[in-house]
């Protein structure tokens, strides 16, 4: 990071200095009522929180300057998450702990900053994500037997919406089940999915199962994103 003094009078020089500043990556959790904030709305929500926190965020220099901000992996509406990542740039060097503290004070209670760090990986390097998928159901034993039966087959064909329209895909190679637990009225699976450029949400899998099993109306599904990974299995940082 540059240690040169910031001179408010010299715009060109400042821009050069700011350009040298590293991208800051903010990891945050989004839970509870915040899960109803869509990805489109989260941008505005974050911008306003940054403004309230009076953090020196860098604005793009175009005709219509706006806060530079970028999100690694958009979260579907209704999912909880403990590993959301947002990138931005500051115009001044600042202590990461102080950023975290001030940002948290300005954020709604259901969004919490976990960590502020320098960006290590590019968002394009993201390849996998892990989720905790909880089914609230009446008979967990029977439910898990049916689900495991369903996920054993070689091919799980579903229709997936993409930018180019709807097409049929095989889910089987895109998911793996890492673990399972059961309790009173619930079954929980730890699932690893393909993520990033080619992205698969666990809802594709759960919807396909619930529909086939005829359980769509009687089962509630809760999804929590736990971690984001690169192709080599290391954690996205």
């Amino acid at each position: 990071m540059s240690n040169e003094a910031f001179n408010p009078m010299n715009t060109a020089e400042n821009n050069r200095l700011i350009a040298q500043m590293p991208n800051i990556r903010i990891f945050y959790s989004k839970k509870g009522r915040a899960k109803y904030i869509s990805h489109l709305d989260i941008t505005r929500c974050m911008q306003r929180a940054l403004k309230r926190a009076k953090l020196p965020v860098w604005y793009t220099q175009g005709f219509n300057p706006h806060m530079y901000m970028s999100f690694a992996l958009p979260l579907p509406l209704g999912y909880d998450s403990e590993c959301e990542a947002m990138d931005l740039r500051m115009t001044q060097k600042m202590d990461f702990e102080e950023i975290k503290e001030r940002f948290n004070q300005a954020l709604p209670p259901d969004i919490r900053v976990i960590q502020v760090a320098e960006q290590v990986h590019k968002p394009q390097e993201i390849a996998k994500a892990s989720y905790e998928v909880t089914f609230l159901c009446k008979n967990p034993q029977a439910f898990s037997t049916a689900f495991e039966e369903f996920s054993k087959v070689d091919e799980i064909l579903v229709m997936k919406r993409t930018k180019k329209g709807t097409k049929q895909v095989n889910l089987k190679p895109e998911f793996s089940i890492l673990g399972q637990e059961q309790g009173e009225g619930f079954v929980r699976y730890h699932i690893l999915t393909t993520a990033g450029q080619k992205n698969f949400n666990p809802t594709l899998l759960t919807d396909a199962f619930l529909e086939q099993a005829g359980l769509a109306d009687s089962t509630e599904v809760k999804v929590l994103r736990k971690q984001i990974f690169l192709g080599d299995g290391s954690i996205f940082q």
Binding site: G32, R33, A34, Y36, I37, S38, D41, R48, A49, R52, L77, G78, A106, P108, P109, D110, E220
Partner: peptide, 19 residues
């Protein structure tokens, strides 16, 4: 909570906004 994900714009019905 069960209903909210079945309706449009659930953010209308949850409160919890800043201020």
């Amino acid at each position: 909570e069960q209903l909210l994900l079945t309706v449009q714009k659930p953010g209308r019905y949850v409160g919890g906004e800043v201020n």
